[in-house]
Amino acid sequence: MAKFLLHRLYIAILVAITVSVIAFGLLRLSGDLAAELAGEDASEEEIALTAKQYGLDRPLYIQYFDWAGGALTGDLGRSLFTNEPVVEMIFERIGVTVKLALYAIFVSLVVAIPLGVMASVRPNTLIDRFSLGIAVFGQAIPNFYFALLLILLFGVKLRWLPISGNDSFAHFILPAFTLGLGAMPQFMRLTRSGMLDVLDSDFIRTARAKGLNPRRVLFKHALRNAVLPIVSLMAVVLGFLLGGTVIIESIFALNGVGFLAFESIMRQDFPVVQSIVFILSLSYIVLTLLSDLINAQLDPRIRLG
């Protein structure tokens, strides 16, 4: 167990370092940031002055170590536009994004697991086709179009739900539903195929032969074993959703990290962009590490194998 843990940790750290370099380099690929910051008709002296002011005249690796060293102590620099500390900007908004991602996962699990279980119990029947149909729909509809349709229907026609802002729980319903629909097909397919495998196994036959309550067999014996891959997928999807909320946040005017990232990309505010990319990557790395640990805890074959 200790060896497995150490190895995973080693890889995670290596990946985190690489990701920090990539995040740092992203907007710097554009070449002359100082010229861009100084404005269109800045003279050369002005550009040089701007470069000096932001520390852009130093060699790249020094700039990187400066930023990475700060990151280790929780200092990610300041925004070029608002001059606020980046850490504060992100922490003010990350709550909204995390809430949105968690609600979205909740929505998709609530739909996907029952449908997946029912589809696996009665494969190739109407209910199986129906759940497959929903999955196919969820996979093919672009979420920004779906979001607009929901706005038109629930926001404008029926006037049931608010369509912009993040003041109350109601504000999260439409965005969470939009985002959740996209994540749902994966969960459903995984539940269905996992359940099909498990239902075919000897211990389920034994449990049924003993005359146990069929529902108990299904949920206690079978689903419990099929749930393992769902846990790891959940971590992956959560990490993915945190970085994938850009579009939804900008459509529903949710003031989260995704929207901040989008705004900052538009105005080349590289301290903010690199920090968001880095933090989101880091959260993905930590989440998958956690899910590996949980899986190893739940399934001795992984930790001993």
Binding site: L26, L29, V246, Q268, V273, V277, S281
Partner: peptide, 17 residues
């Protein structure tokens, strides 16, 4: 490394550049 990076954000940044 690829899986850890938030793809859409990276793509947006690259397009902006």
């Amino acid at each position: 490394v690829k899986l850890a990076l938030p793809g859409l954000l990276v793509a947006l940044s690259l397009v902006s550049v």
